[in-house]
Amino acid sequence: MSDIKGKAIVLNMNNVSTDQIFPGQYVNLTDPNEIAEHVLEGADKSFKNRIKTGDILVAGNNFGCGSSREQAVITLKEAGFAAVIANSVGRIWYRNAINLGLPVLICEGFVNQVEEGDEIEVNLKEGIAKNSSKGTIAKGNAISDFVLNIFANGGIKPMMKSKILSK
């Protein structure tokens, strides 16, 4: 997989829950465009207007903790985020992100080296995040080949589909 490049959107808060990423009052939505409308509404209502397609979300500790709702990944992906970098992430949210093909890099402390709008590059295989605007590099967790393969295939759905077809 090649490097992912984008402008940083910074959310330097800890324990941003799925209830904040995608509030419970909307969990009956299934249309991805409608789901994108409410991105991070529980954390900051103005968030939607700050995001441009291809941006990279840079977050704090335990991002995505809480419920299993998959809209908490869909909303970020459909709102335009190309990747998420966080100090640490909630487990179910992380699995959902992998399965839906939203690249996530766990990189402790990176959020403190980034300002909104900085140019960011992510290399998932090496687990490296680069802040091109500031000229800094941070080492996060390298991603296993198993997970990298899921990202490379655009998520688990296309993989399962081709597996079923090949049977």
């Binding site: 299993s68 709702r69 998959e70 990944v73 179910i92 699995r95 959902n96 399965n99 839906l100 998520g155 688990i156 759905k157 399962m160 079923i164």
Partner: peptide, 14 residues
């Protein structure tokens, strides 16, 4: 353990 919809769909198939 808890999972999201895509994980669950995978289980339902396999």
């Amino acid at each position: 353990t808890g999972v999201g919809a895509t994980d669950m769909a995978t289980i339902m198939i396999s």
